[in-house]
Amino acid sequence: MGKSLSHNEFNVLLGALAKDYNIYAPARFEKQGRFSDTDIIRYRQVSQVEEIVWQAKSTYSPKEVVMPVTQTLFYFTQTEYREPETDTRPCLVFLRACDINGFASLDKIYLENGGTEDIYYKRLREKVKFILIECHTSFDNCFCVSMGANTTDNYSMAVRFGEENIQLELKDEQLAGYLDNIGQGNDFKPQFIQENKIKVNVPSVAEMPDWIYNDQMWKQYDHRCIACGRCNTTCVTCSCYTALDVLYDDNCQVGERRRVWASCHIDGFTDMAGGHGFRKENGARMRFKVFHKIYDFNKRFGKHMCVGCGRCDDNCPEYISYSNCINILNDRLKEGEKASV
């Protein structure tokens, strides 16, 4: 079922939905950018269409809704522990096709990896319904088409935002009641981006040859990458965290166990007891990330982890292009070991 709504009508709809759902959308955080007087766009709860930034790609991804940066797993005393209260209200999340596909990658890791479900993730994830934001144009650095992540049918509602009015498609019958007396009926279906300026050729190899691990191509990233981790923190599919026990200052008999995002580019990620660390060089970290995104994840789950949202390239302060790195990798594999310097 499709509908055309004015912005006012859409706000009435959001108001009605807000009675039963927490509504998350990309919103502008003014003057919170890295440089003074610049903005960032990231996810938060919204109540009005005017708060939703649909004209630009968000700086940070919607994974924050189901993967809080800091998540307390439980509090403990000497002999007891308990989990924190969590908000049980269901959620609606406005997001683009690439990000919906990104959630599929997160689901693989948190719900299917090793045959165990991550309960902390699952509790937040199962509350979420997707509202697809239709992309009008491909943004800078997007390569969703190359990753096959430009389309999706995994949404409860799809929305085409416009200056004049808003078109929507309703797929989820649970939401139908909210639309009964609102807007003009039509047969709207969302369009998907069919071409990006950036095209990425993902190598199709069953097994990466040994020589590519030590290939010269990774060396440039030793000095170019500064190991800041922005490619990971803005990525919709990066899912690593580290857990730590925090003992409260005033009484170290009580505390909490929490998990916090971790980044495979940042120092300490591979640190082990005894001071060992694999991947000391930043080029090795780049290789690890690239292989995980477009090779070994796929071997395990039959789906590439990367969805081509391009946020890593948007946010790299050193202008390292991950998408171009994949293309370099593809070329190197075609040239073969002999061309390796």
Binding site: V260, I266, D267
Partner: peptide
């Protein structure tokens, strides 16, 4: 506090 990942940068 919540957004900090403790990277120490």
């Amino acid at each position: 506090y919540e957004r900090c990942i403790g990277c120490q940068a």
